[in-house]
Amino acid sequence: MTSVRNLPVDALVELALTDDRRAVGRLLTLVERNGPEATECAMMLHAHGTGSHVIGITGAPGAGKSTLVGEMVQQMVDGGSHPAVLAVDPSSPLTGGAILGDRVRMAGVTEAFIRSVATRGHAGGLALAIPGAVRVFDAVGYNPVVIETVGVGQVEVDVTAAADTTVVVVTPGMGDAVQANKAGLLEVADIFVVNKADRPGASDARRDLELMLDLSHMTGQEDASYRPPILMTNSLEGEGHSAVIDAIETHRRHLVDTGQLAKRRRRRIEFEIESRLSTVFEQRMIELKTDQRWVDIVDTTTAGTIAPPAASQQVANLLLH
């Protein structure tokens, strides 16, 4: 039997570039594992970039993000786009397992490529896996690429914020807007969506967001010519999704017109390089801790022979060489 699962990376890349979904699916697995194949994949695909628009969607658990994404993606398909979705859900911290249910909420979306991703406990992994997966989709020609994350952990926020357009979803009545502010989502939002807008408190949530935006404008944002719109949607009734899609397009054009798009993408590359570096250093640090030289440095510092800053410098030198 032929199976793409045993093919080498170069063969997979070749197949994937013809939009063979099995090959794309397999490459995503390799990227997620962050092993040597992931590196190989990144090396081969980076040059194939097609400039897909990357949309991050985040918000509190239960905000209805998946349903919203499902509805939007269906409309994108109907409008002739070829979207892909990365739906990120937390792994169980105890067992490392996960139940990934976003496909249920996106049921009926048959044309888009949907990939469920578990956070797998280690934050650094996600910070590499997501850009890697986006690179695969971008190279194959999926556009836009939608990343959906729960906006709780810093890494999730960072990953989503590294998108071209970041949509923050809140729901009425639970202090979501305030929570979003605390989680640092307010600064990164290009578009706000108040979902489940039929519920009591929707207009309060909107007002809270307006107020916080007024404040942040007074303290000076980097891009004064753009004020994030606040849109009201109702996922169950399917209301307001075209407005979100329109707002994303408006934001995209704004990014292009003002030259911000290039800046954001540069920042994204920067973020990926930083993530890779910290992963490399973390890994070396782990290895170093099993090394006698680490033990010696700690021992001499404990004995008072050298001071901690000097010890750190010695460790840094070891890590760099």
């Binding site: 105890l94 496909r103 469920s116």
Partner: peptide, 10 residues
């Protein structure tokens, strides 16, 4: 899940 697997639930 509790055995550490990733379950894609359809």
């Amino acid at each position: 899940r509790d055995a550490g697997m990733e379950v894609i639930y359809l």
